[in-house]
């Protein structure tokens, strides 16, 4: 198997790592870089647990060949808190949006990609943004509330 050096920006830091052409981004993050905050719930892009932000867009990292991330800006859950918890993290904690927690990192990444782009999302835009993130615990009710509340917090901060 041949290895190629993959260069990209991970949570603001430049990264260089040897990967094989068949490696998926999720496995490089979890196994090689030991950033296990990105979860793997299906490996087929059907559950959203592995969601990361690539060049500003939420993507399922289990469907992204690692080498596709060449020169990309990748953001994972580990990079979301910037000194202090991100408003999304705050509202997820305070409004009961966390239960088993396995979907939580992906859910937050999808929500963050939304709010980075759209500070005043409608309910249906929030639902569209997280529809690819399966949560079996919460019924999504409190997650939706947390995203709405975080959007409001972020607007106040601006």
């Amino acid at each position: 198997m041949s290895f190629t050096t993959l260069k990209f920006t991970l949570n603001g830091e430049p990264i260089e790592i040897a990967v094989s052409p068949s490696d998926m981004l999720v496995d490089v993050l979890r196994d090689k870089l030991e950033l296990t905050g990105t979860k793997k719930g299906c490996g087929k892009g059907e559950c959203g647990a592995c969601t990361v932000i690539m060049n500003g867009k939420a993507v399922a990292s289990c469907l992204v060949p690692a080498l596709k991330a060449a020169d990309a800006e990748i953001e994972t859950i580990e990079g979301v808190a910037n000194g202090a918890a991100h408003p999304l993290q705050e509202t997820f904690m305070d409004l009961g949006a966390v239960q088993c927690g396995f979907c939580t990192p992906g859910m937050i990444m999808s929500s963050k990609a939304l709010l980075d782009d759209n500070p005043q999302p409608t309910k249906s835009e929030i639902r569209e943004a997280i529809a690819g993130n399966i949560c079996r615990c919460t019924g999504y009710v409190k997650i939706e509330e947390a995203v709405e509340a975080a959007a409001e917090k972020l607007r106040e901060q601006r």
């Binding site: 892009g45 969601t51 939420a58 993507v59 469907l63 992204v64 999808s110 569209e128 690819g132």
Partner: peptide, 9 residues
Amino acid sequence: VGSLQIRNI
């Protein structure tokens, strides 16, 4: 199609 994560790629 699919979900936003899919549609984004």
